[in-house]
């Protein structure tokens, strides 16, 4: 029996996707609004994008955010891949339950708790707050997402390939870099991208752990948004949404092509 796709299914999908996408579409449309009043349409204009380009504080924040996200993603990918290896491969060891608890808990832990606790740690350790503390904070929760993404790939990984490489004289390091890494690469890339966007998005944890000279874009957006809706923020949001959309679609296309090629070979 083939699954029946009923009118009820089609309707619920249409409504649910409309609910998911309409607010974003409206936001994008109004970023091209001539009027300063966001809810009154006064004709097409790209002037808010122009204004954004001349807002030095915004550009500085964007640059800080990019550097934080890039470093976070890289660190989190290294630590997260290691953690995934430990979760999947290391079997039982002393403190394993605690370890997996520390991997899964940050995925659902409220931001305010992570932010507050890390800030109090930095103060207790007398570390000056700035870009570095934000990077440490972001790496801590982003590595857990990377670990989950990579470990789901590692579980389905055929270990005999790695054993063959070892039998043929590879050192364990060589076996990892020549055999394992290329195979799990799509999930590692996905993990990196996920960590990058998580860092790019985060407001709460960055607000707690930031210091002078390390104002990130979400903090900047937050202070603007609290004063109300502004077309400039809509324009900025549109740019960010476009970057993420292009990135996610590119990543998934690469992944699907790889999977398709692997399928042909197999």
């Amino acid at each position: 029996m083939t699954r029946k796709f009923t009118w009820f299914n089609a309707t619920s999908l249409t409504f649910a996707f409309a609910f998911l996408y309409l607010p974003i579409l409206i936001l994008i449309v109004y970023s091209f609004n001539e009027s300063k009043l966001v809810t009154v349409w006064a004709g097409f204009s790209t002037k808010w994008y122009g204004e954004l380009l001349h807002n030095q504080a915004m550009l500085d924040a964007a640059w800080v955010t990019f550097r934080v996200a890039f470093t976070t993603a890289t660190l989190a990918t290294i630590l997260g891949t290691m953690a995934a290896y430990v979760l999947v491969r290391s079997g039982r060891f002393y403190g394993r339950t605690l370890f997996s608890g520390m991997i899964y808990a940050p995925l659902v832990m409220p931001d305010v708790i992570i932010g507050l606790s890390l800030l109090l740690l930095f103060i207790a350790m007398n570390i000056d707050r700035g870009m570095m503390t934000v990077i440490i904070a972001h790496t801590t929760f982003a590595m857990c997402y990377v670990a989950v993404v990579v470990s789901s790939r590692l579980i389905s990984f055929d270990r005999s390939l790695e054993e063959a490489a070892l039998d043929l004289g590879c050192s364990p390091m060589e076996a990892f870099f020549y055999v394992t890494l290329p195979i799990i690469a799509p999930s590692v890339v996905a993990g990196w991208l996920l960590a990058f966007t998580l860092s790019l998005d985060d407001l709460v944890i960055a607000s707690f752990t930031t210091g002078p000279g390390a104002t990130t874009l979400p903090i900047k957006i937050w202070s603007a948004v609290r004063l109300g809706v502004s077309p400039e923020i809509n324009a900025l949001s549109t740019i960010l949404i476009s970057i993420v959309t292009v990135g996610v679609i590119a990543a998934s296309t690469i992944d699907r092509r790889r999977a398709a090629r692997a399928g042909e070979r197999g």
């Binding site: 998005d201 957006i221 959309t245």
Partner: peptide, 12 residues
Amino acid sequence: WTSFLIRVYAWV
């Protein structure tokens, strides 16, 4: 994947 903050802001 798109910013949480932006999606909440869209509802304002």
